[in-house]
Amino acid sequence: MSASAKKRIMREYGECMTEKPAGMKINFDEQNMTKWEVLMDGPDGSAYAGGHFKLEIVFPNEYPFKPPVVSFRTKIYHPNVSNDDKGSMCLGLLRPDEWKPPNKVVAVLRLIQSLMVEPNIDDAIEPSIGNEYKENRKEFEKNAKDWVKRYAK
């Protein structure tokens, strides 16, 4: 990774420290700054409220020309997060063809927060969960809350 890329990651971390984005905590290891661990609270009013979700953000060598890779390390019942041990996300900003270099990690984290409040059904990575969200909201919320209890406490 180039020196300027490292500098930018440091700067972004600095910004996150001064402007502390609400509802999350970032663990940063200076020895391994290309991998951030984020602890995100389930937003109030969403099915995930009360849960704490561990996220991993990996910066590629070409950052910021290529997007960071985001994955949920805590299992989450969500149409936009893959329902496997990877917990991957691949939508919006995070798609290489949509990413623009001025975008920042904070924007990615905000996107994730807003997706927890309102999933993007049109771009569901888990269509069955997406369908449930659309057609049987009660069942969806029950399942989501169930998972919060089971995995995210």
């Binding site: 994955s71 893959s82 329902n83 991957s88 691949c90 771009d123 990575i125 069955s128």
Partner: peptide, 18 residues
Amino acid sequence: PYGHFSNPRNKGCFNRLM
């Protein structure tokens, strides 16, 4: 497009999106 990767019938690709 993602349904393909979450359908166990697609043996070679199931769960391999990433």
